[in-house]
Design a binder for these strands. Sequence first.
DNA 1: TCGAATGATTGGGA
DNA 2: TCCCAATCATTCGA
Length: 345
Amino acid sequence: MDEQPRLMHSHTGVGMAGHPGLPQHLEGTGGADGDGRKQDIGDILQQIMTITDQSLDEAQARKHALNCHRMKPALFNVLCEIKEKTVLSIRGAQEEEPPDPQLMRLDNMLLAEGVSGPEKGGGSAAAAAAAAASGGVGADNSAEHSDYRAKLTQIRQIYHTELEKYEQACNEFTTHVMNLLREQSRTRPISPKEIERMVSIIHRKFSSIQMQLKQSTCEAVMILRSRFLDARRKRRNFNKQATEILNEYFYSHLSNPYPSEEAKEELAKKCAITVAQVSNWFGNKRIRYKKNIGKFQEEANMYAARTAVNAANASSHGSQANSPSTPNSAGGYPSPCYQSDRRIQ
DNA sequence: TCGAATGATTGGGA
DNA sequence: TCCCAATCATTCGA
């Protein structure tokens, strides 16, 4: 390479006026004849080919000379314009993508489960449902629930840590690329729009990684949720007190054992179960009572007697019982809880 | 271990 | 949407 004839004149001081280091033919005057132009192009190509042979100082000097050249801004503008009209216009049309429906689904799910968005006490629909279903009856259910919440919190923490990492990496990389491009824009035509496009490409790449993270987080939540719901299927009998309250209501409203929504809510609160469980219980009770009245007769008599005693106590103490099991229909009292005048058919 | 009891689920009807 | 009826799945006690 050293044997190559050097056609550059920069270090020898041969160049255009005011721009030492640039050959005169870059001034734009050019040769009048074709041979002269060919010679100029040959010179430039030769310079490019041999630029790697230059010392750092020489390269720096040439770079500086290029940057200071009076035609440089105009030339770069033209080149940027051409680039924009060709590549960018084509890509620009492709960039206008609608929001990814899958990503929206993932975001919605993470939000609903309380993984993303503001931290909620308990977080998820499953946890809420579970909380309602367990109704706080028994320590086991609440223990299961708190275990569920703890695991959900763990998932949430991992998700946010990873998300933060990705965002940080994305920002660092974007800044790095932007600096690099800005630096390069001094020596090659790079428009701000092009830098912007590059940034959006980087963001897209990182958001696809984020989508993977969201997907695996969703999967983890689904697994946790299904395990939890499976565990919930292992039913527990209601405690004795809850069964007594329900039975008292049932037998005291035997002529119309259909509690209204308000009565169900009150019973649910008293028994620490859900309204749905109250409905289930009454549904089961009605049908089982109807199927075998004889078998339930003893139970019915017992609750009727208890109700009568309660009523007597209440009246002698002049107090008003506010229980939904307040004696009424069994003793002929109309119940405000009746939703309609129905009987077990 | 087995049968009864019991809470939950499902499908159909009004 | 609520209820009934049948059924399932689990618990509990003998």
